[in-house]
Structure formats: structure tokens, C-alpha cells
Amino acid sequence: MSTTLPARLVRLLAGLALFGASVALMVRADLGLSSWDVLHQGLAARTGLPLGWIVNCVALLVLLLWFPLRQRPGVGTVANVALVGLALDAVLAVLPPPSALPARIGLLLLGILLNGVATGLYLGARLGPGPRDGLMTGLAARGLPVGRVRTGIELAVLAVGWLLGGTVGPGTLLYALSIGPLAQFLIPRLAVPAPGRPATTGVTTPCPA
């Protein structure tokens, strides 16, 4: 597997584009979103702004919280802020919402699977985490348990998104239960090798969102 910078950039950009597309599939399924996307959808409903714009604006605001936490962004961090929302809006523009329940279930399952693949590609490029991951690791670096930090952030974001009108449903639970195992399985298999390590030992950073 190539570890050159151009190859890693291609992997990063492909992962980010696929991540935005996977979120669009889950939005069109209308069966429930991930915690952060519930917030994004709720904000979009209240402001009237395109969902992709909201995704990028929230990422930028979260990124500002990195500074007091002394987190350093990478190329992947900046690309995340710029590209995920654009890919999301592009897919929403060409994909009409299905009415049949089997089609909606199919979109949800495909969206979750592609989200896991996108996570492996994006984080596997080793060019910097997303803004939301950096918030979690920054708080954990202050001595807080990672599990509690991640759970607290997810629950807080989900609650605010639900109050704003974001879609919470069976897909929300399915995503929460499946994205972790998917990411754990796919990240090591899609990651470029770290210096001095074999290709099978991938990163274990949580998924971007």
C-alpha cells in the first residue's frame, strides 16, 4: 500500500467525499441520523440554510474550541471543514427522497456501511482528525475518561438536535451500535502503515462526524 503524500491525499479526499455522501443517504432515508447529524438537521430546519453549510459551519465552530484545548489541526482537519458539507449538499441535490419503506431501509443501511468505509479512508490517511474528534481528544487530554467524554458529547449533541427538530429514529440507534464495530474493522484495513509498523496495525481514532 502506497504511503506517499499524494496517495494519502487521494485517500483523504475520497474518504471525506464519501463521508458526506453517506450522510446524505441517511438523510434521504429519514429513519434517524447520527447524533451530530441530528444537530445539523435541526439547525438547518431552524435557519433555512443548506444542510451542508450547517455541517461546515458547526465543524468550524467546534474547531475554534481546539485552541483553548491546545489541539493542533492537520491537513485532514481543514479538508474536513471544507469538503464534507459540499459533498453532502451535492448528493442531496441529485437524490430524491424515496417513499417506499424498503428503499428507505436500503438507503439507511448503505449509508451506514459507506460511512464506515469513509471513516477508514479518511482517518487511515493519517493527515489529521476531524474537528469533533479533536474536541473529544482535547477534553480527554485534560484528564477526563475518553469513554465518558465521547458519551457526554454525543448525548448533549443529540439532545440539542432533537429539541431543534432533527430526525431521531431507529436509524439513530442502529448507527450508534454499528459504526464503532465497522470503524474498528475497517480502519486498520484501509489505513496507510504508520512508520515502522506493518500495514495491518491501523489507527484506532474514533470516526469523524
Rank of each mutant, 00 (worst) to 15 (best):
R142Q: 15
L83Y: 05
R28Q: 07
G120N: 06
G147R: 03
P208W: 01
R126H: 15
A176N: 10
V84P: 05
A100M: 11
T151F: 15
A209W: 03
L65K: 03
L86N: 08
L60H: 12
A118G: 05
T119S: 08
S178K: 04
A118S: 05
L92P: 04
L63T: 06
G124S: 00
R104K: 14
L60N: 13
T151A: 15
G152I: 12
P195E: 11
L61V: 13
S99W: 10
C207S: 08
L155M: 04
G76H: 09
Q71A: 09
A209M: 05
A183R: 01
L190P: 06
A7W: 12
G111P: 01
R11M: 00
P98I: 06
L109D: 11
D89T: 04
L25G: 10
L86I: 06
V149S: 05
G130L: 02
L43Y: 07
G128E: 10
V62H: 13
T167M: 15
L186A: 14
R197I: 15
R189G: 15
I112H: 00
G166W: 15
V168C: 13
V117E: 01
A29G: 08
L139V: 08
V55R: 00
S2C: 09
A118E: 03
Q184S: 11
M26A: 03
V62L: 14
A44D: 09
C57M: 12
Q184E: 14
D89P: 06
G48H: 13
L123F: 08
L43M: 08
I187W: 01
L109F: 10
P68C: 01
A29F: 03
L108S: 10
T205V: 01
G165S: 11
L60F: 12
V149F: 06
L95P: 05
T172I: 09
A191N: 07
R142L: 13
R70N: 03
G138N: 04
R46V: 08
L114T: 02
S34I: 00
S34C: 00
G32E: 01
A103S: 12
R70E: 02
A45K: 11
L12E: 03
R104G: 11
T151Y: 15
A93V: 14
A59K: 09
G32K: 03
W66R: 08
V27C: 05
R8S: 02
L190W: 00
I112A: 00
T151I: 15
C57T: 14
M136E: 02
W66Q: 09
N56E: 10
P170S: 07
L65Y: 05
A14E: 08
L39C: 05
G169P: 11
V10R: 02
R126E: 15
P98V: 05
